[in-house]
Design a protein around this nucleic acid. Structure first.
Length: 650
DNA sequence: GTAGGGTTAG
């Protein structure tokens, strides 16, 4: 028997000096044979070496110790994950099998966790299969491992078998299986399974556990079931900051930014003992960005500074995006400039910020600066930079970047990337080339890709290609009203009124409705929202009167109403009345009345800006000498002195 | 011995 000793280190460092995440440099050890050392001493020494991060020496000693303990194996496995060494981990695994620990449920749990860490799900499953005494810990470890790789269905199968042999769920199992419902890579929604488990949780009296109920809120949020999520949230007997954050995130992610900000206000006003943290703030910033609520966003930024949350990377990335999406690109850039460290997400935020403002070349420049600084682009970096190329019409640059994905960065294009390319080529009126890209795709082109093509056909009024794309889209997402409306728009523009009727009939028979466009504006920290058929707003009469007056004045300046977007076969004057009532025009009129003269008018639109509103706003900006910023669903339009920053390319 | 919310795009 022998041991080795490091002359300058004590054999057993105190617990406080053990920091598994920091990669400690192994101390220089001199190995001394100690024939009298006991098994207990050796185990202690191996454990101590593991804690010091000296895995190599620990393994050397292991090979000479015939009786390692369970705890020794546990620390060895942990050390292998900290050192990121799958090979060593497998060596320890073999060793413990040979030493009679093959049926130890405690070590089986650790092994499953370890293989999960190394993304080696087959090995994790094998450990589970070979373990006969499956405690709830063993089951939970497998549930967690499978959920992490998206095998939700398998979790639920195993869970059902576990229950059928009389092993009840514990509070941990419930959180894992709820997560499994969302973490499924199969196409069938597991929402109903989630609801069943919800009922189970209530029946078994687990509805008092904050963790479980928060996971439920999150599960409903991820399925887009906002009302179910808020119902669970409202009925929670105890809520903490995580539950509040989950509900705020649910609103922010599901197009309910108003509600997200409202709930945050409630959290601040009505709970004294709960303090929002960085996670909460990220969702709140997302909500501000969605609404282009600049003043609210500034207040939140102030709060973040006061609470010292301004060094947390996700918070800063969300701040950059918030400012850019509120039309303050330069403030976003300033926040970025002040970062003392940046990750790929921070860079992506800035790239997409320049992209939505139409500065394609600048976005490419930042992308290049990022790689020059040694930050590897992620798939989202490419979505951002390709999107930026698309908005700016930089076709050649986009094609080169797309080509470099696989060649220079080893990233295989996903559906999103193909959709960007189709958009890039389609917008530039290279529709056949866009269609060819789809033909040559090695993966199944999903609705995003066909949707991009249809959108481009709408811009360039290509009926034949639009019909081809629509056939696929109606099949892939039969309930998306937007696709039918796009096709009807194209027919209307081509004057094919019978076809317009046919598509509208199709919409009707399928029980779908056109989602009305909505525009909103923030004035003195309050957000005002408009739809074209709004009769509730008390200022509506005044707004209409102003628009009629402006329209006739602008006509003298050369404005010609573009009425081809109206999906009805009406007289020109009626069509003109309809486009004059578009929600963004109402918001512009509201801004003209309620914003002070030197202040820019900032408007957000839920759909793509129509050609008439675009032309109208250009004239307005010159005629009234006002700066008007409109963010539509794709990008920013910055109107000044009769010109738009998009160069009429959008 | 295990658990809950978040960053960028679309």
């Amino acid at each position: 028997m022998w041991v080795f000793q490091s002359p300058k280190t004590t054999l057993l460092p105190s617990r406080s000096t053990f920091s598994p995440r920091t990669s400690l440099k192994p101390p220089v050890c001199s190995i001394t044979l100690n024939p009298t050392a006991s098994t207990a001493d050796n185990n202690k020494l191996i454990q101590s070496l593991c804690k010091q991060g000296n895995l190599g020496q620990a393994l050397k000693l292991l090979s000479h110790e015939p009786n390692p303990t369970q705890h020794t194996y546990e620390l060895l496995l942990l050390s292998c994950t900290h050192q990121n060494s799958l090979l060593d981990a497998q060596h320890v695994h073999r060793h413990l099998l040979e030493n009679g620990f093959d049926q130890d449920p405690f070590l089986a749990t650790k092994l499953i966790n370890m293989y999960s860490f190394f993304d080696s799900i087959d090995n994790a499953r094998k450990v589970f299969d070979k373990t006969q005494n499956r405690t709830i810990y063993v089951y939970n470890a497998l549930f967690r491992a499978l959920s992490l790789v998206g095998h939700g269905e398998e979790v639920l199968d195993t869970y059902r078998r576990m229950n059928s042999i009389g092993i009840p769920s514990d509070r941990f199992s419930y959180t894992y299986v709820l997560k499994a419902c969302v973490a499924s890579d199969c196409l069938v929604s597991l929402l109903n399974k989630g609801k069943e488990i919800h009922a189970h949780i209530l029946r078994h009296g687990y509805d008092g556990y904050v963790h479980i109920m928060t996971t439920l809120v999150d599960m409903y949020a991820k399925f887009g079931c906002v009302s179910n999520a808020s119902c669970v949230f409202n009925q929670m007997p105890v809520k903490n900051v995580v539950s509040w954050s989950a509900m705020i995130a649910c609103y922010a992610k599901n197009g309910k930014a108003f509600e997200a900000l409202e709930l945050f206000r409630e959290l601040m006003l009505e709970t004294q003992d709960l303090c929002p943290n960085s996670v909460t703030m990220v969702s709140v910033l997302q909500a501000c960005a969605a609404l282009a609520a600049l003043e609210q966003g500034r207040l939140i930024h102030g709060y973040i500074l006061r609470k010292g949350l301004d060094s947390i990377l996700p918070v800063i990335s969300a701040l950059v995006t918030m400012y850019a999406r509120c039309g303050k690109l330069e403030l976003g850039q300033r926040v970025f400039d002040h970062m003392d460290r940046r990750d790929v997400v921070s860079w992506n935020s800035l790239i997409s910020s320049y992209g939505v403002h139409g500065f394609g070349k600048k976005a490419i420049g930042i992308f290049e600066e990022m790689t020059y600084n040694g930050v590897e682009p992620s798939p989202i970096s490419f979505v951002s930079v390709l999107g930026a190329c698309s908005h700016a019409g930089l076709v050649d640059e986009g094609k080169m970047l797309f080509k470099s994905m696989r060649g220079a960065h080893g990233i295989y294009p996903s559906v999103e990337h193909y959709a960007c390319m189709v958009d890039l080529l389609g917008r530039a009126n290279r529709l056949e080339e866009a269609a060819k890209i789809i033909e040559d795709m090695r993966i199944e082109p999903g609705p995003k890709v066909w949707g991009s093509l249809l959108g481009s056909c709408r811009i360039h009024c290509n009926v034949e290609l639009a019909e081809r794309a629509s056939i696929r889209l109606f099949d892939l997402e039969p309930t998306n009203a937007g696709n039918y409306v796009l096709l009807a728009d194209i027919y209307a523009e081509a004057g094919m009124w019978d076809e317009v009727k046919r598509v509208k009939k199709l919409l009707e028979t399928r029980g779908l409705q056109k989602v009305p466009g909505r525009s909103w504006i923030e004035v003195k920290r309050k957000i005002y929202s408009f739809v074209s058929v709004d009769e509730v707003n008390p200022q509506m009469e005044q707004l209409h009167a102003l628009l009629v007056k402006l329209s006739s004045e602008l006509k003298e300046e050369g404005y010609v109403p573009q009425t081809k977007v109206v999906l009805y076969d009406l007289k020109p004057v009626e069509k003109e009345r309809i486009v004059l009532g578009h929600s963004e025009k109402l918001a512009v009129a509201f801004g003209l009345i309620n914003c002070s003269k030197g202040e820019a008018i900032r408007i957000t639109k839920s759909l793509r800006l129509c050609e008439d509103c675009h032309s109208f706003t250009k004239f307005i900006s010159k005629f009234t000498n006002r700066e008007i910023l409109v963010r539509d669903v794709n990008r920013f339009h910055h109107f000044r002195d009769g010109v738009c920053s998009c160069g009429d390319y959008w």
